[in-house]
């Protein structure tokens, strides 16, 4: 019996973009996309987020679901390695580990339960964000399917929030874009859960999806060298 019981309120708390774990300073590649003129209105934002749903969101969600299910540190380390080799951009790898570290730190005060000790052995840089997210979900009493949903939401709300700030888009219209993306977001989360279960059954995490976005990888490398930037990634 976990200290924190299965709860939907915990999911809402963790998925809220105000949850204080550092995400507000990341744009999920949107700052670069705006600078390059690729995203400039709600239509192009919708296209950008659709791309995220089918790539980064699906990968992150399948790792979050797998990590949520995982009950030993060795397997988590394996998952972390599998996620690491899916990120081609060193800047994105650093950003993901930072976010993971920050999430774990906030979770320690939010849900102080032994489950978080599973991540105690991770190296100095911290584990990758989706892996930490999965473990934090387990600590908070959130089920793997909701961990996947939480990862998907994060992957699209982070750039959506940045679009409101960087482009001055009407926040209501941006919410409208997210609402339109809700059904595909749900589908991405279910697919991620299925993929995580299959990998678990076969005990082979290399089966987890490995979809990337080369343009975002290149842009992330460039972004890290900007003289002035508002977002960490």
């Amino acid at each position: 019996m976990p200290i924190f019981h299965m709860t939907r309120s915990a999911l809402l708390l963790l998925a809220d973009s105000r949850f204080p774990a550092g995400a507000h300073a990341h744009s999920g590649g949107l700052e670069s996309a705006v600078a390059a003129g690729r995203v400039h209105d709600t239509a192009t934002l919708h296209a950008f987020l659709t791309g995220r749903l089918h790539t980064a969101a699906l990968v992150a969600a399948s790792f979050a679901a797998a990590a949520c299910h995982c009950e030993n540190a060795e397997t988590l380390a394996e998952l972390d390695h599998e996620y690491d080799i899916r990120l081609l951009s060193p800047a994105l790898r650093t950003a993901s580990r930072r976010l993971g570290k920050q999430l774990l730190r906030t979770a320690r005060t939010t849900w102080p339960v032994p489950r978080l000790n599973l991540l105690a052995a991770t190296p100095d840089g911290g584990s990758h964000h989706p892996v930490v997210l999965g473990v934090v979900c387990a600590a908070a009493g959130i089920a793997p399917e909701d961990a996947a949903l939480c990862a998907v939401q994060g992957a699209i709300t982070v750039p959506a929030d940045a679009a409101i700030r960087l482009l001055g888009l009407d926040p209501g219209e941006v919410s409208g874009v997210l609402a339109k993306l809700a059904p595909p977001a749900d589908r991405t989360a279910s697919k991620a859960l299925t993929l995580a279960r299959m990998a678990q059954l076969k005990n082979d995490f290399s089966m987890l999806p490995a979809l990337g976005s080369p343009l975002l990888d290149l842009a992330a490398e460039d972004h890290a060298t900007w003289e002035a930037r508002l977002y960490a990634s």
């Binding site: 320690r108 339960v113 032994p114 978080l116 000790n117 599973l118 105690a120 052995a121």
Partner: peptide, 24 residues
């Protein structure tokens, strides 16, 4: 680097009665 994890091999979610769980 699983060496240090051996300290808490399994997530103990059910603290025994009277036992204080190791809170991170």
């Amino acid at each position: 680097m699983p060496a240090k994890a051996a300290k808490t091999p399994e997530a103990r979610e059910t603290p025994e009665a009277g036992e204080t769980p190791e809170i991170p």
